[in-house]
Amino acid sequence: MGDRGKALVGLGVFILLVTFPLWGRLAGGQPVPGRDDLVYPDPAKATDCIEARDWMTANHMNLLNRWRDDLVRRGVTEYVSSSGKRYYPSLTKTCLDCHDDRDKFCNRCHDYAHVTPTCWECHTTPGGGA
């Protein structure tokens, strides 16, 4: 039982370390970032997304993954939305028509959520923009 003290100290250090992301910013005096409001594309281009807005905000990555497999692997060249509209399943050729600013429509939220999707390592904006 002589190791009890050591074990407790070790446990304390461990808890301190794993909770660093939670208290690190506060301790450093940095402001905790709040989530910016979502911005929507120019209403002149479109007023509705492929599916309902809220659903898209939460699930666009799943839809993109499905489109990817549909187009690349299954040769499906059309996506019929729940409202019956038809879309060409392509990030560059469909989504980016309206969401035409990557910083505004992609990066801001991805930065906030601290996710780094690898899409842009290969995919370009329409017209070959890196």
Partner: peptide, 12 residues
Amino acid sequence: EGKFLSDFPTRT
């Protein structure tokens, strides 16, 4: 302008 000549995805 520094744009690729096609919007075919580059590779990684």
